[in-house]
């Protein structure tokens, strides 16, 4: 399996460490607005776990060491794109488009 890294280009999957599905943004920390337990539960544990197009965290641990979100199909293993994890949640629209299967 080849995975596209936005920084390094197409690389073999052995260079990457998968870290699970990117389905919920990390809840905000600090102040009086501490996130509810449910938000953490959602972020850490529960998953929609779709069969089909998904977004998944990978760490390019044997490459540029950046965190990326890879857009993959869990039925065919086809990789259709990826983005820097730091930019993924900032661009909710893009995430929603991907959810819609574009």
């Amino acid at each position: 399996m080849l995975i596209f890294c936005p920084h390094c280009g197409m690389r073999p999957s052995e260079e990457f460490t998968p870290k699970g599905l990117a389905e919920a943004p990390r809840p905000a920390l600090g102040g009086d607005d501490r996130p509810e337990d449910d938000a953490w539960q959602d972020y850490l544990h529960t998953r929609t776990n779709k069969a089909g197009q998904t977004n998944e965290y990978f760490h390019h641990s044997l490459g540029c060491r950046r965190w990326i979100v890879v857009h993959r199909n869990t039925l065919t293993h086809e990789v259709t794109g990826s983005t820097m994890a730091s930019e993924f949640w900032q661009n909710q629209q893009q995430a929603q488009d991907w959810e819609a299967g574009q």
């Binding site: 399996m1 999957s13 998968p18 776990n49 998904t54 039925l75």
Partner: peptide, 13 residues
């Protein structure tokens, strides 16, 4: 294998 999948098959590495 480490990544999410429903494919009932893995990869060579």
């Amino acid at each position: 294998d480490g990544y999410n999948t429903y494919a009932q098959r893995g990869n060579l590495p």
